[in-house]
Nucleic acid binder design. Structure first.
Lengths: 227, 227
DNA sequence: GTCATTGGCAACCGAGCGGTACAAAACCAG
DNA sequence: CTGGTTTTGTACCGCTCGGTTGCCAATGAC
């Protein structure tokens, strides 16, 4: 993955924790005996991710989840432990597949090109017809019932990790003289992430890919990063 | 209210419907006889609004709501009809009090001043310590369980109404030659709303007022609406 | 084949959900 | 005071929630 250079942040730690928990909870990789599983774990995890993405954490009931995944509850609990652990796996996978695209875009040679690529990749991902519209990091549960407050925190940590990656890229640009004078990398990263999150809200409400790219055009034209 | 000029949109219709329903469901304004109510309707509605704002529609259970409102369930149902109708009243009141501030800011003489005032009023409202951080229009329920899909639609309609108000202001500016050449009012309105919504997401995750205003600075510096 | 081990599935658990029935309490008209 | 009307509070309704139990089917080792 080309974005590992940025990954000194919270999310990766959390994902690691999640993976460890999972490895501890499940049986050994190749069970010598016993009946084989009738489902592929990554496949059903992808389907669970879509259900969370579409309905949010609280809106995705176990009935919705098992129906989407094509397995029943005991299989789900044997494979993933609990609804919350399933969500953590799903969110980690969402980052590895969807968010990674946008983060990888930060590898462009200039700050302007990086931000443009980031925003365009983000807009494309938010309106990809192969997935629910919008962004799991926001739809998953910006506000939750008190007992699920952890979910909101996990999602916020994921968004903060992405913003940190943008800021890191822009800090490098500042050192290289690739940013307009007086432009604060932190504030600019916040601006870029906020716009991307707003696009996610718009996409969830049905905005088209062209709509979002027109907004990106304005942000870029406006940004005047090109020197 | 100074924003009525913009209000030819969906939300006002919906609020009207809501008010009519409410008027039909409740007793006459001054019941001649009977035990008097022990609570003020607007007061408990404000508290319900905060509960929805903080926990979202699905996260705000009846227990949470009645506890926050200081009344019990039968009183809630007698006064408001159902949880969904209570939410509609709360959302309408949210628009009348919170969103109205940002919309009123569009009355500035120039497009630049209007957008700046809109974004700054929005940022201030999102970080007002007298209320939960963020925006009810997004926290209320961007994604819901299938049976509550109506809630997401109502919220999306509210956001669309605000965006339409911004677009209307910018269309006027375009006619008056107050926009840079080739700038599309619709795309610009979408950009402004997206940024504001992203700020709402950030505020919900704990961003400070100063953080948001720094992002607004970039958007404005970038926008180059000043001619 | 026999047997230990594992996964799949129907049925179930206590708890909390949104919503309601009913009777006691608080008011006004007469 | 009495009678009619409305609100209040308790206790409950059917239902779905997240999570679990126990039985049986499917497998590899021997």
């Amino acid at each position: 993955m080309t974005v590992t250079g940025f990954c000194t942040d919270q999310l990766v730690t959390r994902v690691t924790i999640c993976t460890e928990r999972y490895a501890g909870a499940m049986s050994t990789e190749t069970p010598a005996v016993g009946r084989p599983r009738a489902f592929d774990e990554e496949t059903v995890l992808d389907r669970a991710t879509e259900a969370f993405w579409r309905h949010g954490y609280e809106g995705a009931s176990l009935s919705v989840l098992t129906s989407a995944m094509g397995i029943n509850r005991p299989s789900l609990y044997a494979a993933f432990g609990s609804k919350e652990q399933l969500f953590q796996r799903a969110f980690a996978r969402y980052h590895d597949t969807q968010v990674a695209n946008a983060r990888a875009a930060l590898g462009q040679p200039t700050a302007y090109a990086s931000i443009e690529a980031f925003l365009r990749a983000s807009a494309d991902g938010l309106t990809d017809r192969d997935h629910p519209a919008g962004c799991l990091s926001i739809q998953g549960g910006l506000a939750c019932s008190p007992e699920n407050a952890r979910i909101s925190e996990i999602l916020a940590a994921g968004r903060a990790a992405t913003e940190a990656a943008v800021e890191e890229r822009l800090s490098r640009a500042a050192k290289e003289g690739d940013l307009p004078d007086g432009m604060d990398p932190g504030a600019l990263a916040r601006f870029v992430m906020a716009l991307s999150e707003g696009h996610a809200v718009h996409a969830a409400s049905g905005a088209s890919r062209e709509d979002l790219h027109a907004s990106v055009d304005i942000a870029l034209r406006a940004l005047a990063l090109r020197q």
